[in-house]
């Protein structure tokens, strides 16, 4: 199956088995191992990438379904040597231990901040008709699709809070 993707600003052409997920295309066919395979079933968020501006679980979608789309992975978050504000804040607050969920947390948080700016609501938003400030409860609810087994949630949330406040 021929598929063209723009990944972190670079256009790539693939000719792959229809069964190849977007995650496996990134990892096994393009050598972009930053996106992690924690469960392969949409239950952990480690594979989160940003496809056409939306955060998704790349393990639960076929590469072929994304033909023509723009994908951002953790490898595309920094600008050259300059880390993104979130990446920097994760270092500052030690929002990681083993690091395996970290790329997913970062991609997810990057898109989450955009969603919040666009006024999207969450389960814990009191009033659906007015945009909610990004409280701690809002952040943790919106980030709940990303598990961290080391238990770094405090550091991750502190990092997000720091960037959200900027």
């Amino acid at each position: 199956m021929k598929t063209v993707l723009t990944i972190n600003g670079q256009q790539v052409s693939l000719d792959i088995d229809t069964r190849v997920t977007l995650l496996d295309a990134l990892r096994d066919h393009l050598g972009l191992y930053g996106s992690k395979k924690g469960c392969d079933h949409g239950q952990c968020g480690a594979c989160t990438v940003i496809a056409d501006g939306r955060r998704i679980n790349s393990c639960l979608t076929l590469a072929a379904m994304h033909d023509g789309e723009t994908i951002i992975t953790v490898e595309g978050l920094a600008h050259g040597e300059a880390l993104s504000a979130l990446q920097q804040a994760f270092l500052g607050h030690d929002g990681m231990q083993c690091g395996y969920c970290t790329p997913g947390q970062l991609c997810s948080a990057t898109a989450m901040l955009e969603e919040a700016r666009a006024g999207r609501a969450s389960q814990v938003t009191d009033d659906l008709t007015t945009p909610a400030p990004l409280s701690r409860a809002e952040i943790t609810e919106r980030m709940s699709g990303n598990l961290c087994r080391c238990g770094c949630y405090s550091g991750i949330v502190a990092a997000i809070e720091e960037v959200a406040a900027e």
């Binding site: 395979k37 990446q87 994760f90 690091g99």
Partner: peptide, 20 residues
């Protein structure tokens, strides 16, 4: 700061299955 942190936030850290 965690000295391997930068590798972890940029996706550069290579875990077992990521050797090919």
């Amino acid at each position: 700061e965690r000295r391997d942190g930068r590798d972890k936030v940029t996706g550069a850290a290579r875990y077992a299955a990521e050797h090919a």
